[in-house]
Design a protein around this nucleic acid. Structure first.
Lengths: 248, 248
DNA sequence: CGCGGCTTTGATGTTCATCAAGTAAAGTGG
DNA sequence: CCACTTTACTTGATGAACATCAAAGCCGCG
């Protein structure tokens, strides 16, 4: 207990730039919170909640960085993030764009001492953070608790793998159509939205060059399938876009 | 040694189609067995061990099939398997070639009622199987037990994701060199081995067409980098192969 | 104002899929 | 056991898809 309190104190005082907006919270909607209260003994639950911090990240901020020693466990409460990894050739590859409840961050907390992926905020993002050691201790010691994580991590990894398979069986036009539809249908739930990614990031997401991403986007525009101006996108002909995504 | 022979003999005398080679066993080297005895209460441990069956699969046999309801939990004890999934376009995509201790099978037991992937034996393979519901119950109810799974599943999924990234940043020659080296360095630990995959399966593994796989393999042969005759491969110029894998 | 980063377009050559055709190997039925 | 079918493998020719290189416009920032 005192050891963990110490941990918590240390966490507060080693705050770097990113943690400057942190404060304690007891929000009810946080998913971790729900698992916690459902499965944990009240004392431990309380301990977890006390150590929980809500941290605000601005667009572009790095939440955790590949290769760094894991020091915090985090859950995305609001916002949008990208999860990426360096390739052999030191290029960035985005493996997932994720929202709250996607729990994609789980992919990087187990099996290694260091973060496997870099997580970056694509929009202003609110994250609940927990001291890493404490979280591990709780997971290790509490019945049923880690089973929830097993489900979530499986689901998250299957989505990433699925996405790779889907992308790799499509040509460039198909891939672009696919991710535009993804933003439209799954993330923003509207046919008009602002792309949270630069052209370069789109390229990193679908594994193509920037030039060709731009080229195809221009083609889509010329063909009246989408309207695109800078980052703002309007889908004009969704049927056609779906066709391209499916057969391209 | 004689135990394994006995096992083999007894295999001949059992009942239903897929399980016709099964029998109870108490092998010490099985990894599940080790976790079990380390973390589980003796009673439950005993229950698990009683329900455990050792099943022998022949080359080409399907261990579990994508889309089927999950009814058994399995651990690969000996042999070599492939894990694959159908793409949108109903083509096979191999997401991993795995040996014992890779625990890749874990990727398909959580987060869904149905198997996410098809698992096929590439060599004669020995698997320990457990009734699925029982295994879930144990995982849910026992401290520390599922934490081991968390680590393993994370590790397995990161390897698959890593592999996709590595492949997607290479051209065809690079991909082929990469997987040949993989078989040589990580699986068979020798420069002369028999490929456990058909040309078509290699294509499914690296996301290319059969024709081009064959073409590049022939090129490698013509250039004196490898010798290949049917499925048997000799690596003649490993340095060169590594160069191609790295820069291609 | 100039610099660097992001975006865009065009020209060019390489890589790769597709189509076609043929050979070898492996089952299948009489 | 042989004729027959099917499946796996192989090579070549062709065109489409894509990366690369080059150059220029745009925009925010010091």
């Amino acid at each position: 207990m005192s050891e963990k309190f110490l941990l918590y104190i240390m966490n507060t005082f080693t705050t770097n730039l990113q943690d400057k907006h942190s404060l304690r919270c007891n929000c009810e909607d946080c998913f971790i919170n729900q698992i916690v209260s459902k499965h944990l003994a009240p004392i431990i639950c309380d301990q977890l909640l006390k150590s929980k911090m809500e941290v605000k990240y601005s667009q572009g901020d790095t939440l955790v960085e590949e290769g760094e020693k894991i020091n915090k466990f985090l859950y995305i409460k609001e916002g949008l993030i990208k999860v990426s990894q360096l390739t052999d050739k030191k290029e960035n590859r985005i493996i997932s764009i994720a929202r709250p409840h996607d729990n994609i961050t789980l992919l990087t907390f187990f099996s290694s001492e260091k973060y496997l992926y870099t997580i970056t905020a694509l929009e202003d993002t609110l994250a609940c953070t927990f001291p890493y050691r404490l979280m591990l201790d709780v997971i290790k010691s509490e019945k049923e608790f880690s089973y929830g994580f097993l489900n979530m991590i499986s689901y998250a990894s299957s989505k990433v793998i699925n996405n790779f398979i889907k992308l790799s069986s499509r040509n460039l036009r198909g891939r672009l159509a696919y991710i535009i539809l993804n933003f439209s249908d799954n993330i923003y739930k509207t046919d008009s939205f602002d792309l949270p990614l630069s052209r370069k990031e789109i390229a990193e997401l679908i594994g193509m060059t920037v030039e060709n991403v731009i080229r195809i986007l221009s083609e889509f525009k010329k063909d009246g399938i989408i309207n695109i101006d800078g980052k703002s996108i309007d889908i004009l002909d969704k049927k056609k876009l779906q066709m391209i995504s499916e057969f391209g």
